[in-house]
Design a protein around this nucleic acid. Structure first.
Lengths: 200, 200
DNA sequence: CACTCTATTGACGCTCGTTCAATAGCGCCA
DNA sequence: TGGCGCTATTGAACGAGCGTCAATAGAGTG
């Protein structure tokens, strides 16, 4: 097979191509398990071009994670009307369906945030607070969750639980249906927040 | 300053020294941010010796994580008697106090598990299931949590929430006291499990 | 059909993980 | 007490892979 001819794309197109490829490749390998050589070959470009667009391997990783996070936020826009509990259910459903549909990309995002440096973590935290924040910032904010330090802590914990439940369920649903999962996640927020009264 | 004289330790001592140092160094840096050069210099040994003991950088990382996990398990032995809820509270207290006292080591463990490869994740999963499993394997197992697929899923989620709560609280307690935190964590398990009846 | 702009290349330097034959501390036995 | 052997330890050498930079070649424009 002869060497492929050099193809010239617009910066936006090339950037998009490289980010999409990065999300796919980083879902199963960690960053240092992914060599620039492999990435370049897979994309049909030279090593140098990656540095022209992203400057460093780390910066490329950050761009990939931000790309995945933006996608998550965009594809799970919350409803603006309806009762609070119903809005919660709709949002959770969108989140679960997104994670199911984009499993690889989402795992890539979570792994990067948990294992990576401060800036990667920051990108993830921003996405997460965007997901949570818009749930509790309507006109009827406070109907489900009061705004106290302990309550904020609990909401953060509930988010972590939700993520664990969904990823674990995808990994092995063990006879639990999607509807049951949604019911568990939605019901557990009020249940957890209800703890606020009992703690001493 | 002259080069330090070569010190000869027993394999057990040297191994212990390197593992302890590894836990400390990997708490703030990720694995690829930690060079063998730095590690060797910090330990006062040559690069080659590390390979003599662990074979590779990856294998060293695994040994460090296993070391931290074993320490966690050993230092949080659960009570064998008392009422279920009281045992739960005692176990959670031991866990929280351990994480507070060994913050760096614990963060090192969690980051490795979340961001690392399959074997690192397996080590962490084993430790976690050991922590949970011994809570619900007494003679009175089932008094708090029934043994169904959905319940197992929820317990796993509760574990993730607990970890998030404790780490987040250590990072910024925001006026929440240790006692309040313990109350929240302990009370949230029955609260979450109570959801099982309501879900449809 | 030149000509310019810039997307793209490929070879080079350098850091860092890994290997391996050589070295030296420490207990043992005469 | 003094040599001897075992093995903990070393450090130079190798290779893989990240990052740089001047040179090259598509694609639109006059």
């Amino acid at each position: 097979m002869t060497t492929a001819p050099r193809t010239r794309l617009s910066p936006a197109e090339r950037r998009e191509q490289l980010l999409d490829l990065g999300v796919r490749l980083l879902a199963h390998r960690s960053l240092d398990e992914l060599s620039i050589d492999l990435l370049a070959e897979e994309a049909g470009i030279s090593r140098g071009l990656l540095y022209h667009y992203f400057g460093s391997k780390q910066a490329f990783h950050e761009a990939v994670v931000r790309h995945a996070a933006d996608d998550l936020i965009a594809q799970t826009t919350p409803p603006t009307d309806g009762e609070p509990l119903e809005r919660l259910r709709t949002s959770v459903t969108a989140y679960v369906d997104y994670v199911v549909a984009n499993h690889e990309g989402y795992v890539s995002l979570v792994k990067a945030a948990a294992g990576g440096n401060e800036s990667l973590r920051a990108i993830y935290e921003d996405a997460r607070s965007a997901l949570n924040g818009r749930l509790f910032h309507g006109d009827d904010a406070g109907e489900i969750v009061p705004d106290t330090p302990a309550a904020r802590l609990l909401v953060q914990g509930w988010s972590a639980m939700t993520e664990e439940l969904v990823l674990s369920w995808i990994d092995d649903s063990r006879g639990v249906t999607r509807e049951e999962l949604l019911g568990l996640v939605v019901a557990s927020l009020p249940a957890v927040v209800g703890v606020l009264g009992t703690g001493r």
